[in-house]
Amino acid sequence: MAGKTAVEELELIDAGRPPRDSGGAGDFGGRRPTPAVPQVYVTGIWLALASILMFFMALTSALIVRRGLSTDWVPFDLPPLLWWNTAALLASSLTLETAHRALAAGRPLAYHRWWNVTTALGVLFLAGQWMAWAQLRAAGVYLATNPSSSFFYVLTGVHGLHLLGGIVALLYVATRRRRAAPWPVERTAVTATSIYWHFLSGLWVFLLLLLWWGR
């Protein structure tokens, strides 16, 4: 089964964070041992991604094994709508990045606008996925029709649920911003949400290729 070893995970987590503890006793590394430290949200999101990746890798290996072992795998054509959905999701990653940069550059209005565009594109993606399901149902392809369709519904379904979580996070950050939350906390929430969102975009591309390969 594919996956990362514990040490790789640790390196993943340690990458891109400021050096800490370098001075031995006395060096605080800018952090205090209370839950109010913003860094924990970024660490937490990376760990969540490791776990989610493991979850999808389990499903992926199940697909590969199930497809390889049996003779009953009947391919079906993926709805072309999926490509449009993919475009919407990838675009949302771009707009999110634009929002992020606007925030860093101190242009709050642009940041707000692009953030909202991202949210809208996310909703559009989910609606598109729902329509793709409807098209398949109309074509007589159901969850239990064939292992190929079973995996299609399961993978798109659990990815959609994770993305729904992402949309909730986007909306949550949007509401916090109106409440004029303290600057570092907002920034952390933006960073954490962005990491999660980009991950789901990348994951979707991977899943799409997997489904396309295993049609």
Partner: peptide
């Protein structure tokens, strides 16, 4: 647990 161990250790 992992986040706490990585991020919330006290000085030293």
């Amino acid at each position: 647990f992992i986040t706490t161990t990585l991020d919330l250790r006290t000085r030293g």
